[in-house]
Design a protein around this nucleic acid. Sequence first.
DNA 1: TTATAATATTATAAACATATAATATTATTA
DNA 2: TAATAATATTATATGTTTATAATATTATAA
Lengths: 115, 115
Amino acid sequence: MAEDIVTRLTAEFLKSLAHPARIRILRLLTPGERCVCELITEIDIEQSNLSQHLGVLKKQGIIDSRKEGTKVFYRITHPSVLEVIRAVEKTIGDQISESQNLLSHLGKGGGTGEN
Amino acid sequence: MAEDIVTRLTAEFLKSLAHPARIRILRLLTPGERCVCELITEIDIEQSNLSQHLGVLKKQGIIDSRKEGTKVFYRITHPSVLEVIRAVEKTIGDQISESQNLLSHLGKGGGTGEN
DNA sequence: TTATAATATTATAAACATATAATATTATTA
DNA sequence: TAATAATATTATATGTTTATAATATTATAA
């Protein structure tokens, strides 16, 4: 069976999301549009690198931009992308809960589990 | 501000998901556990490569395994990971809907837009 | 016009991910 | 114990992503 196109698109989408700087950018854009000059003060990377990361997200259609004078404002194209991040956080939460659960059962029989 | 750990964990999680073969594996595991010998027949990659992709997912805690005789069965650890994939598909759907919408407006004024 | 501010682009080296091929491990069966 | 089946590991070559540095573009202001 030939590799299905939805699978490839899904993987590409995930790839363009899969970088700390890009997650950070999306978090900063969550309340609304921001110009690059604002983003750069909140994110600790070089200007050219920020521009490249913005390019990755824009190429994938995840963010969009608008020019105003010398400034460029970016915004999230479809808020549904935030659900992706929320879903990841939820799963990571599940993983942490489970390991805490396993740990607490090691200490079963009383006390806090310390010795 | 130092890079927050949730952001890094989120990016790492997304990275380990961001490959067509790995998305494919999760789809195959959605109905329930499968042995590698079954997976290999449904996915068109080499056995050692499949094993490596399974390793990536397992290291991230996304899948888990159980040995039975000479076979190894893999399963999804937390079904919430499937929400991540669904959310990506939803966003891609939003993107496609929007571009179809834009296209249809180009043809506004009658007809199908063909000439 | 020149200078400046804001952003993007390009080139490049280093780090990382990937697929393949070969080999190793482990469990079962003959 | 030798052969086989199922899976994992390792080495490696190739391709991709990343950060940095340098430079280019664009718009405004002096």
